[in-house]
Every structure is written in C-alpha cells, then in structure tokens.
Amino acid sequence: MRARAHHSRRSLRRLRHSVLNDPLVRSLLLLVLFTALAALLAWWAGRRSLHRLTQVTGAARRISAGSTLDERLDLSGPRDEVHELGDTFDAMLDRLDRSFIAQRQFTALASHELRTPLTLQRTALEIPLAQGRVASDLKPALQRALDANARTERLIDTLLTLARGERARP
C-alpha cells in the first residue's frame, strides 16, 4: 500500500509538473516570439520614418548650402508629420525668398532716391565755391559739408552696387 501511495504521489507530481510547466514553457516561448516580432516591426517602422526624415534633412542641407532660395523640398508620399514638416520648411523658404527680394528692392530704391537730394546738395555747395561767392571764413565749413556729402554718395553707391549684385546672383 505504501508503494502504491508513493507511486500515486509520484504520478500526481508528474501530472502537476506537466500541467504547470508545459503551459508555462509554451507561454514563455510565445512571449519571446511575440516580443521578437514586435521589436522587428518597431525597428522596421522606425527605420522607415527615419529614412523620410533623413531625406528632409539632406534636402534642407542642400538648399542651405546653395546660393539661392529657389529649391524646395516638395515632398511626396503619405500626408504625415514628416510631410507636414516639409511643407512648413517650404513655406518658410518662400517667406525668406520674398523677404530677401523685398530687401533688395528697397535697397535699390532707397539708393536711387537718396542720390537725387545728395546731388542737389553737392551742386548747391559747389557752385558758390566755384564762383567765388563764399566768404573765406565759410569755405572750410562748405568743404567739410562737401566731404561729408561725398562719403554719403560713396556709401549709397556701395548700397546700390550691393543691391545689384544680390539681384544678379544665380
């Protein structure tokens, strides 16, 4: 009877061991399998997203290194966050381009508009000096005014040259 009870207890232990351990082993194997599958899927999705961001970064660097603001990212593909980032970057480039154009136009216009009054001032100072109608004590003051006028004209010429040069850049 004792041997039978011992055998019965051992069978019960084996049964309990197979009932408890087999599902646990299977569950652990499934857990490892699904974890590996999830990690692989996450890696693939992340790689795909990063690839699009790498494209945006490369295009932004290329545009930044160029001398004009004519190029745009103009992204294709799904309308996601990366596409929205590209559209925002393109809109910023459009605003910058318009701003630089307006700046060049203003510089050119201001340079031209400032030349006329300076020319009139220079003429108004030079004619009396050339005709000898200026008292000798006023001549140094008129000469300083002419020198200041000449410096201002050179500055405006430089601005005009800069504006023309910016407009001519490819």
Rank of each mutant, 00 (worst) to 15 (best):
L142H: 13
Q103H: 10
H83F: 10
L29V: 02
A38Y: 07
A39N: 06
A42H: 11
G66D: 14
V82A: 05
A102N: 15
L120W: 10
A60Q: 12
A39I: 01
I101F: 14
I127K: 11
R72K: 04
S111Q: 06
I63L: 13
G58V: 12
A135R: 15
A150K: 04
L109N: 04
V32I: 09
D74A: 08
R10T: 06
L15K: 13
S64Q: 08
R52G: 03
A163L: 07
R133F: 06
H7Q: 09
E71S: 12
L12G: 10
L93Q: 03
T123N: 08
R144A: 10
V82C: 06
A3M: 02
L159V: 04
A59T: 06
S76N: 11
A65Q: 14
H112R: 13
R16W: 03
E71N: 08
L138E: 15
W44C: 05
G86P: 00
R48E: 13
T158F: 14
R79G: 02
L118N: 15
R14S: 04
S136D: 12
T119G: 08
V32M: 10
A148V: 08
N149Q: 06
R151S: 12
D147P: 00
S18M: 14
R164L: 12
H6Y: 05
T107A: 12
L138T: 00
I63Q: 11
L33W: 07
L29D: 09
D147H: 10
A45T: 12
R164Q: 14
L12V: 01
R4S: 10
R79T: 02
R2W: 03
T35R: 06
L159N: 08
D70C: 00
Q105P: 01
H6M: 07
D137W: 04
L28C: 13
H6L: 10
A141F: 08
V19H: 14
T54C: 01
